[in-house]
Simulated assay, not measured.
Amino acid sequence: MTRVYLRSFKLQDAPLLLKWGQDDDYYRLAGFARYQNLMQAEKAAGQYAARPYSYALCLQKTQQLIGLVELYDRGTNERDLLQTKEVGFLLDKEFSGHGYMTEALGLVFNYAFNQLKQEEIWAGTFAANYKSQKLLRRLGFKYVYEVDLSKISHLFSYQEKYYLLERKEWLKIKTNTES
């Protein structure tokens, strides 16, 4: 039994989005947007709610929102757009180290590979986000490449590492952990 569930975002989630948006750690490690006030966070909650694969991560026991997980389109051609997604995630640091994000990503990956028929899921992390990189490797992702975005545009000042999880690898992992 999982200890977490995923649901759509609601306007009532805005105060927590505001909290995350005012914490430099979330911006520094994951590029989470900065919010100055509740109105900006409410707008963000509406944007999350409007996205088809954007999920609020909640605890089963208390229904408390503790994080978010999103699948994004990835690719430059029709085949890639149909068969490939990118995942983004954030966990409230008060809930770190309990395996909640591992469970949530498992739910999302099962859905993506089995229902959406995705062949690949990519994940990008800031170069200094070692916790996320460790989690991705534990879930079967393989490191593929790094991009120095500061070389692309003066608007960016960070490097991002990209990891890939292929459907066949996920199915192998799921089979080995279920038997």
Rank of each mutant, 00 (worst) to 15 (best):
L57M: 09
T84K: 06
Y55L: 04
K151I: 10
E119A: 13
E178K: 15
S179G: 11
Y35E: 05
T84H: 14
D13G: 07
L68G: 05
Q47D: 11
Q12C: 12
V87K: 12
R137C: 08
V144L: 10
A127F: 09
D23H: 02
S179W: 03
Y143C: 13
L29I: 00
T102Q: 14
Y143P: 13
T102F: 09
A50P: 05
I66N: 04
L57H: 03
I66M: 04
K172V: 15
G106M: 11
N129Y: 02
R79H: 08
A104P: 09
N110F: 08
Y48S: 08
F156K: 13
L107V: 11
I152V: 15
Q118A: 10
Q63V: 12
A45Q: 03
E166A: 13
R79N: 13
Q83C: 06
S157R: 14
R3I: 03
F126K: 13
V108A: 08
K85D: 11
A33M: 06
L81T: 06
A127H: 13
Y111N: 15
L68H: 04
V4F: 00
K161D: 15
I121G: 10
T175G: 04
R3G: 05
A123N: 05
M39I: 10
D80W: 15
E86G: 12
A112M: 12
T102E: 08
F156N: 14
K172A: 12
L17H: 00
G106I: 02
K134R: 08
Y27K: 05
D23V: 02
A127P: 10
A127Y: 14
L171K: 14
M101H: 01
L16P: 00
G106Q: 06
V4Y: 02
Q47S: 06
T2G: 10
E146T: 14
S150Y: 05
K19A: 12
G67H: 07
T177A: 12
D25Q: 03
A128G: 04
Q159W: 06
Y35H: 14
L136E: 03
R138F: 04
T62D: 11
A50V: 02
V108L: 04
Y27R: 07
